[in-house]
Design a protein around this nucleic acid. Structure first.
Length: 448
RNA sequence: GACCCUAUCGUCUAGCGGUUAGGACACCGCCCUUUCACGGCGGCGGCACGGGUUCGAGUCCCGUUAGGGUCGCCA
């Protein structure tokens, strides 16, 4: 039987990074096993659900490249969907839940209490077979000893999570429930519910949680908790996906960066680690840099331009060829697109802000005649291209009896405002002789 | 309070009774070099603690400690 797995988020208006990884692991397993990946929206709590909140989830999954075989195609519960097990919004499955409630009532496995309907929970410990954790024997806690039964229908008639989750997994033919370990304890309730519904529970695989870098629980408000921020801050989805694969699962063989197709081939449930993992942003950044370096020129250009516009630079004022040439000098240099406004901004403005410490060090009276001599040489240079520019720098330095670096540093600072940046020879060529000389003059004026 | 899960460098991990405990990120040197980044070389750094079992334990068992999770008319 082909596996059927699902990602069943509640539309709260954002997609948690942990939820994204849960979706990823479900997706990976489905793709690995040739199964079906289903997206189901758990919108039973009407008060906090909106179409926009659902769109956040859909867009998040799309951004990551996690396509679902069954599920909604839009955030509209009444809108189109794909698959034969719909509706895929719990808010549209009221009658299904109602039938199941009536069945439990008829069998005496549920009863009314204070306007709610409660489920008659098993008193004996329940064995939870788990593909990741192993067999877990769950006993009742002291509070549950006092009253093991739990509410499955609220007094307003709305069925609650534990119940709808089980009913939907049953009705949708879910074979493997892959979810966060925070649900492990609750699984006893779910298994009892499956039994009461005369059904075999699916196989469970509880995956470890993602913690903050300090080891605390990652909650909504924590930095990096929201998937959306990664796109905004210049991360590539393929880098994030790769990183997420490495959190709680290992390809073995000292592999780090690896194509998704290979991850799919190697991925399996029993190899998932049992302990929580801390989110290490530095490693994500490194991976992002690795992927960014390999990007096609076109995609690099598009994402870079977007990042620069986001940073307030007016690219439209410059010829497209100029923008492309400028951005090409940045490829392989930055690890995040969000670094670009600071890194490449000098290409798109004439107001250079010098790094104060560097200015003090480089814009000295001693450097004035050197830069002046270089300026004169560059002014006569034709064609104004990287190789001859480099040769000029070296020649002037030699005449001056100094290392090339002595000229490079103040020149770079004059043109970029920074001590680090793209290849100086290339950047000067792209800036063009007029702009380059003007920046040199501006810097020269400060060297008194 | 009860119940459940977990424990290898700072972090992510390899290890599945016999290893000089391996790799990656980060960090620190050196090399390369027009800066930075990349790349190359090297360094720092770990089996939480205590008992067992065994000829032999990072690996198996128990306990302690620590971290995480759950016990809702949230999901």
């Amino acid at each position: 039987m082909k596996p059927r797995v699902r990602f069943a988020p509640s539309p709260t208006g954002f997609l948690h990074i942990g939820g994204a990884r849960t979706a990823l692991f479900n997706w990976l397993y489905a793709r690995h096993a040739g199964g079906t990946f289903i997206l189901r929206i758990e919108d039973t709590d009407a008060a906090r659900n909106t179409q926009a909140a659902v769109e956040v989830i859909l867009n998040g999954l799309r951004w990551l490249g996690l396509d679902w075989d069954e599920g909604p195609l839009s955030g509209d519960p009444a809108g189109p969907s794909r698959g034969d097990y719909g509706p895929y919004f719990q808010s549209r499955r009221r009658d299904i839940y109602q039938r199941r409630i009536e069945a439990l009532l008829a069998k005496g496995l549920a009863y009314e209490a204070d306007g709610t309907i409660k489920f008659k929970m098993d008193r004996a410990p329940i064995l939870i077979p788990d593909l990741v954790v192993g067999d877990v024997r769950r006993e009742l806690t002291d509070r549950e000893q006092a009253d093991p039964d739990f509410i499955i229908v609220r007094s307003d008639g709305q069925p609650v999570f534990h119940f709808v989750n089980v009913v939907d997994d049953l009705e949708m033919g879910i074979t493997h429930v892959i979810r966060g370990e925070d649900h492990l304890s609750n699984t006893a309730k779910h298994i009892a519910l499956f039994r009461a519904l005369d059904a075999d529970p699916p196989q469970y695989a509880h995956i470890p949680l993602i913690l903050n870098s300090d080891g605390t629980k990652m909650s909504k408000r924590d930095q990096g908790a929201s998937l959306m921020t990664y796109g905004e801050e210049g991360y590539l989805p393929e880098a994030l996906v790769n990183y997420l694969c490495l959190l709680g699962w290992s390809p073995k063989g000292n592999r780090e960066k690896m194509p998704l197709t290979e991850v799919i081939a190697a991925f399996d449930l029993p190899q998932i680690l049992r302990h929580n993992a801390r989110f290490d942003l530095a490693k994500l950044v490194w991976l992002n840099g690795e992927y960014l370096r390999e990007l096609s020129d076109e995609r690099f250009y598009e994402l870079s331009a977007e990042a620069l516009r986001r940073g307030g630079l007016e690219l439209a004022r410059y010829p497209d060829a100029y923008v492309r040439a400028a951005l090409e000098t940045c490829k392989g240099k930055v690890k995040l697109f969000s670094e670009l406004p600071a890194y490449a901004g000098f290409y798109f403005t004439d107001e250079i802000k010098y790094d104060p410490a560097a200015a003090e060090k480089e814009f000295t009276p001693e450097n004035r005649p050197r830069v002046d001599k270089l300026r004169a040489a560059l002014a006569k240079l034709e064609p104004f291209e990287p190789d001859p520019i480099g040769a000029t720098l070296k020649a002037v330095a030699q005449e001056l009896g100094v290392k090339t670096g002595v000229l490079v540093h103040p020149t770079r600072l004059a043109c970029c405002g920074n001590t680090a940046g793209p290849s100086l020879y290339h950047l000067l060529a792209i800036l063009g002789k007029d702009r380059a000389l003007a920046r040199l003059d501006q810097a020269l004026a400060r060297m008194v």
